[in-house]
């Protein structure tokens, strides 16, 4: 294939990756920004979303779109509810101590992962795409569903942005993020906000998973790589900044794809990882954050 189309394809793939990454990272960023804790189990909520999507689509025969719509509504809700209880029963008890939260969420990571293994088994599970449409470019065929993923991610992103900047809930969240104690003094139920934020963050990861699972497969170990990548996105983008998260997801998603056009793939991974690390070193507050927020 010629260079031009090759680059075009790499860009398309990068955009899909960036879209999904952006949603996962957004969830992590919310939790990170508002609650100031690192949720190591975030990738497992993503995985849970994917596995539940496979499970839920299994209930419906016939048109795969029905199952998919059910999955994208029920799956993230279930994950959100689970996350809500995790927050109530564990994170609140350790008073959001940063270190204790890391250990607790590592524990939750193992628990979720192993429960999924026990309940749903170790095989990679496919989910049918809600529709099947191949776009025939002159040089290659491309799945129409992947373009839908990009669109869906943009819509969700806009929705989250709207909630945070234009609604009362968003105001409360921002207030809590900015200064927890003052927020409390103004009568905001900080505890409730935390629980909602944690559940929403997990739910966003689950939405991303339901979107991706017709492209990839649900597997009980699938949570690790997105966790690492979304961590990177959150840090690069700057805490709590939606715009930063979006830009960082685009950088990570695209750089991985496009650098691999020029280098052998493994070398490309090494180079892109190093580059991102260097951005962090020389601009540790992230691209859109302020230093004081770290």
């Amino acid at each position: 294939m010629d260079f031009g189309p090759f680059l075009f394809l790499a860009t398309l793939e990068g955009l899909v990756q960036a879209a999904v990454l952006c949603l996962i990272a957004l969830g992590l960023s919310l939790v990170f920004g508002v609650m100031r804790v690192v949720n190591v189990a975030h990738g497992e909520f993503y995985m849970l979303g994917a596995v539940l999507a496979w499970w839920i689509t299994g209930w419906f025969a016939g048109n795969p779109a029905i199952g998919f719509v059910a999955a994208i509504i029920i799956g993230p809700l279930l994950v959100g509810v689970i996350a809500y209880f995790v927050e109530r029963l564990i994170l609140r008890k350790v008073e959001y101590d940063p270190e204790a939260t890391i250990v607790a969420t590592i524990g939750i990571l193992y628990i979720v992962q192993q429960l999924v293994l026990i309940t749903f088994g170790p095989d990679a599970r496919p989910v049918d795409t809600p529709f099947y449409f191949l776009i025939e470019f002159p040089w290659f065929g491309y799945s129409g569903y992947k373009l839908l993923v990009i669109c869906a991610a943009i819509m969700l992103l806009l929705a989250v942005w709207y909630v945070i900047t234009r609604t009362r809930l968003g105001l409360v969240m921002r207030a809590t993020q900015y200064d927890r104690e003052t927020a409390q003094n103004f009568g905001i139920a900080v505890n409730q906000v935390y629980a909602i934020v944690f559940a929403t963050g997990a739910g966003l990861a689950a939405v991303a998973a339901v979107l991706i699972v017709p492209i990839q497969q649900a597997h009980y170990l699938m949570g690790r790589d997105p966790l690492l990548l979304s961590f990177i996105v959150v840090i690069i983008g700057g805490l709590g900044s939606i715009r930063g998260t979006l830009v960082a997801a685009l950088i990570i998603g695209l750089s991985d794809g496009i650098i691999s056009v020029f280098f052998s793939p493994t070398l490309a991974k090494m180079v892109s990882t190093l580059l991102v690390a260097m951005v962090l070193v020389f601009k540790p507050e992230g691209l859109f954050g302020s230093r004081s927020q770290l």
Binding site: V94, A104, I111, L115
Partner: peptide, 16 residues
């Protein structure tokens, strides 16, 4: 075979 589940539970108990 779910020994990591046990490990996870121990970690959570420990941290609590």
């Amino acid at each position: 075979s779910a020994y990591l589940l046990v490990a996870g539970i121990v970690l959570v108990i420990l941290v609590l």
